[in-house]
Every structure is written in C-alpha cells, then in structure tokens.
Amino acid sequence: MSQRRSTVTVGDTLDPAVVGRRATRVGLALVAAALPLVVGTLAGIAADAPTVEAAFTAALGVMDAPVFGQHGTQLLFHVGTLGLLAGCWVLGVGLLLDGLFD
C-alpha cells in the first residue's frame, strides 16, 4: 500500500500543494460552519408559517429580498449563504491546487 506523504519541507509554505491542502481544510471548515446556519434559518422561517404553501412563499421571499437593510432571520440567512459560498470557492481552489500540484 502506498501512503500519501508530503515531499515539501516545513519551511516552504508558498508551494502550491501546501496552499491547496490548507485551502481545502479552510473551505471545508467554512462549509461545515455555514451549512447548518443556512438550513436552520430556512427551517425556522418555514416553521413560523401557518401552511406549507406559506412556508415556501416565506422562504422564497427571504431568498429574493435585498441583502442590505435586513434584520433577524433574513440577515442570518444571507450571512450564512455568504459563508457557504465563500467556503465552496475556497474548497474548490484548494482541491484544484491540490490535484494539480500533488
């Protein structure tokens, strides 16, 4: 069996493979932190609605609302979505660098 081992010295932090591994870890951490926030916020918005149709309408209304000038669950949803998107971008860059230079 082969094991994946780094051929990079500890002091070489600008190597693309090292940057890719670190970006992958940071991206996963951002996604893991933001995903429950987004899902929980949408579940909370849907739970406040009296019917299922009203829950879908409320959830779509939050997604369609402008980012600035909001408060409460709407702001929480947009902050979580921003964190989720940033995590996906960082994770993608990390996987790309790790795959290309490893």
Rank of each mutant, 00 (worst) to 15 (best):
D48G: 12
A47P: 05
F77L: 01
A55I: 07
P16D: 07
D15K: 14
H71F: 15
F68W: 03
A49D: 03
R5F: 10
V93N: 13
L42S: 11
V39R: 03
L76N: 02
L82P: 02
D48C: 10
T13L: 12
F77R: 09
T51D: 04
L85I: 05
L91A: 10
L84D: 05
P66Q: 00
G69W: 00
D12R: 14
R4K: 05
G99V: 06
C88K: 03
A49F: 03
L100R: 10
A33Y: 07
P50F: 01
V19Q: 14
W89G: 10
A17G: 14
A65E: 01
G87I: 04
G40L: 05
V31P: 13
T13R: 05
F101N: 10
G87R: 07
L30P: 08
H71S: 15
L91Q: 13
V79W: 07
V8R: 10
A58C: 11
G69A: 04
M1Q: 09
A33E: 02
S2I: 00
D12N: 15
D12T: 14
T57D: 07
T73A: 15
S6I: 00
E53C: 01
T73E: 03
A47W: 11
W89K: 08
L35G: 11
T81R: 04
Q3T: 06
V19T: 15
A54E: 05
L85M: 08
V90F: 11
A58F: 10
G27L: 02
T81S: 09
D64S: 14
G40V: 10
G20N: 09
F68H: 10
L95P: 12
G99Y: 12
A65N: 02
V18P: 05
G99I: 04
D15W: 13
T7E: 12
L14C: 09
G94P: 05
A58I: 01
L75F: 12
L84I: 02
D102M: 03
L85E: 06
Q70I: 01
A54N: 11
G27E: 00
R21N: 08
S6P: 12
T9R: 07
L42A: 12
R25G: 11
T41A: 06
Q74V: 09
G94L: 15
V90G: 10
